[in-house]
C-alpha cells in the first residue's frame, strides 16, 4: 500500500472537457485506481487543500493539471502542487498552450466587461449600471468575487512543467499511455510532449493521396465546398494543419471529414505554433505575384484564429501595446 505512487488531479480554467476525457477512460480508470493512490481530485474525491498543504514537499509522484490559468487562486494552486509533486503534467491544450479560451487575450478585461454587462444586445440596465466588483457590500454583509485578469496563461508560464499531454482534450489512448509510462518510469527527457513525435500526416489515412510536393493555387473555406473524404484535404485546398501538427490523436477530425485545426500543438523544436503554421502556408501557395498571392489569401482572412487557435497565450506579443507619443 505504502508503495503506491501518489497522484493528484487538478483543474484550473477548464471547460470541463478534460475532466470528461478522464471519465472516458471508463473501465481503465479502475486499473489506474488499483495502481496508484489518488490523493487529490476535487471533482471526484474528498480531500482538502489543507491535506495537500500538510504533505511533505515532493511526496506526490505526479500531478495532472488541466485548464489554463486566469485567476490568482489557480496560480496559487499550481504553485502548491508544484512544490508537493515530483512531476507536474500539463493536461490538455489549455494547460499546454493556453487553449481556445486563450483567444480572449486579444481583448482586455475592460472591453469584455463592457460588452457583457453594458453594451451587449440583450443587456438592459437602468440609470445604475451594475458591473460586478471584487468586493461588494450587500445589506447583510460583504460579498467577494475573485479578480478577473486581463490575460490567460498556459501552465508553464506559471510553474515549471515536466511533461505535456496535448489535445483538446487529450485522447483516451494518450492519457492511458502516459499513465503507463509514468508508472513504469519509462519516460522521455523532461519537457517532452507525451504523444507522437511526427506530424499528424504520417498517421493520417489520407496521406497516400497527399502529393509529394504540395502546392495550391486556391484555398477553400470548409463551408464552400463538398469535402471529398478520400483525398488529402490539403490537396483539395482545405487548410488542414496536419503537416505542422503533432501526431497522436489518430486523425480524429480527418475521420470526421474535417481538416485538422492543430489541437495537438506544434512539433518538437517549434516554439511558436502560429508562426510555424503561417510559414507552412506560405510555402505551399503556388503564386509569386503579390496580386495573385493576395487573392489566394482572401480565403485566410483570420490568421490569428486559424494558426493560433490553441496557442495564443504562448505569444507574449498580445501583451504589448502601441504607444502614441504626444505632439
Amino acid at each position: 500500500m505504502a508503495d503506491k505512487p501518489k497522484v493528484a488531479f487538478y483543474w484550473c480554467a477548464s471547460c470541463g472537457g478534460c475532466e470528461e476525457a478522464v471519465v472516458d477512460l471508463a473501465e481503465e480508470i479502475l486499473d489506474v485506481v488499483e495502481a496508484v493512490d489518488i490523493v487529490f481530485w476535487p471533482v471526484a474525491l474528498d480531500f482538502k487543500v489543507e491535506d495537500v498543504e500538510a504533505m511533505e514537499d515532493g511526496s506526490i509522484a505526479v500531478s495532472f493539471i488541466n485548464g489554463a490559468v486566469r485567476l490568482s487562486e489557480q496560480e496559487e494552486m499550481a504553485h502548491l502542487l508544484r512544490q508537493k509533486s515530483q512531476l507536474v503534467i500539463a493536461f490538455g491544450s489549455c494547460s499546454h498552450l493556453g487553449g481556445v479560451p486563450g483567444l480572449a487575450n486579444l481583448w482586455d478585461k475592460a472591453s469584455i466587461f463592457d460588452y457583457y454587462y453594458v453594451s451587449g444586445p440583450t443587456v438592459e440596465h437602468g440609470e445604475n449600471i451594475e458591473v460586478p466588483e471584487v468586493k461588494i457590500e450587500v445589506p447583510e454583509g460583504t460579498l467577494e468575487l475573485p479578480e478577473f485578469w486581463d490575460e490567460v496563461k498556459s501552465l508553464d508560464q506559471v510553474v515549471k512543467v515536466d511533461y505535456y499531454l496535448p489535445g483538446c482534450p487529450p485522447t483516451v489512448k494518450i492519457v492511458s499511455n502516459a499513465i503507463k509510462a509514468i508508472l513504469s518510469g519509462d519516460l522521455p527527457p523532461p519537457g517532452s510532449v507525451l504523444a507522437g513525435t511526427r506530424a499528424l500526416c504520417y498517421e493520417c489515412p489520407l496521406n497516400d493521396s497527399k502529393p509529394e510536393k504540395l502546392l495550391v493555387k486556391e484555398i477553400k473555406r470548409v463551408h464552400e465546398v463538398e469535402i471529398d473524404p478520400e483525398t488529402c484535404l490539403l490537396a483539395q485546398g482545405l487548410l488542414c494543419l496536419g503537416p505542422v501538427t503533432r501526431g497522436g490523436c489518430e486523425s480524429l477530425c480527418i475521420e470526421g471529414h474535417m481538416p485538422c485545426t492543430g489541437c495537438f500543438g506544434p512539433l518538437d523544436e517549434v516554439l511558436d505554433q502560429g508562426a510555424k503554421g503561417l510559414s507552412f502556408l506560405s510555402s505551399i501557395i503556388d503564386a509569386d505575384e503579390e496580386e495573385e498571392i493576395l487573392q489566394i489569401l482572401d480565403k485566410v482572412p483570420d490568421p490569428v484564429g486559424v494558426f493560433y487557435r490553441y496557442s495564443l497565450p504562448r505569444l507574449s506579443l498580445t501583451s504589448k501595446k502601441e504607444v502614441k507619443l504626444g505632439g
Partner: peptide
C-alpha cells in the same frame, strides 16, 4: 513575400 503578406495581415489582429 508570401510570409510578409500573411504577417501584415496577422499583426493588426494582435493590435500591432
Amino acid at each position: 513575400l508570401r510570409r510578409y503578406i500573411l504577417l501584415k495581415r496577422l499583426l493588426p489582429q494582435l493590435g500591432i
